[in-house]
Amino acid sequence: MKSESVLEKVLVSGQLAVTSECGPPRGAVPEIIKEKAELLKDYADAVNVTDNQTAMVRMSSFAACVFLKQMGLNPILQMVTRDRNRLAMQSDILGAYAHGIDTMLCLSGDHPHFGDHPEAINVHDLDSIQLIQMVKTMRDEGKFQGGADILNPPKMFIGAAANPFADPFELRVARLSKKINAGVDFIQTQCIYNIDKFEKWMKGVTDRGLHKKVYILAGITPMKSAGMARYMKNKVPGMDVPDEIIKRIADVPQKKQADEGIKICIETIQRLKEVEGVSGFHIMAIEWEQKVPEIIEQAGLLPRPVV
């Protein structure tokens, strides 16, 4: 084992892992993060805590992770390279690990253009692949990026994202391979609606044997309405929502659309369980965390293993 991470233990045991996500509040309101955490407790092996997602200021991922940890959940510290240089990132990693946070997700982060501080500079001292390298060096060599020794090096289980739906499609497998070579342990994918395209990507992954070098968790996000489906298709960069999904949701009465969205989610999970190389699911119910337990339950992913 590379870490004490519960997620690592579940994945190593060969069982399908389940992760979920909660976004910290736009204010110093611990109750909000605690309520979301309460909903996810006992349903997910680990819970991602986003880092100023969509470039909007929120409570820091690190601080919110500490609340989750205190409640007995296993938080995944998300870290984007947009807002901090390598000094700040390493100090947060030390701080998080000192609080018992042993799993993280390395991202470049949405461009400030999309957020509420478009005038901010984006740092990108490192990119996501270099961040993975840095965290691995901290863990395996006990050294800071600058080369000095670390007292009690942080043993992080290292995650990253992959978007099989972004362009150019033909280098998306090679990009995963780069992340593996950088030292990533697990991958959470972009939300999957175009299953055919995802399977095509996974075929490329398994053809190269990459699924034996990294655990891939398939990204799942329930749609609340046809409006949300259209928004995701047209407004969210890197999202691939086929028209038949939108039509399927739009064809049921407004009041039933959320249920249809959940149904699609569960069907997607059932189908993806059969896909070689899928090691688990990452269920992101954006501001809809109360639905996560029923998705996990109905998808037959309960009870969660005790490791």
Partner: peptide, 29 residues
């Protein structure tokens, strides 16, 4: 690259364009 990624592209590259501006070529494409 809008994020000056030395190991890109990010997940926002679409049809050869950058996610922040459809008139801007994705450098990594």
């Amino acid at each position: 690259c809008a994020k000056r990624l030395l190991n890109g592209p990010c997940g926002g590259s679409s049809n050869g364009k950058c996610e922040i501006n459809p008139d801007l070529d994705c450098a990594w494409q």
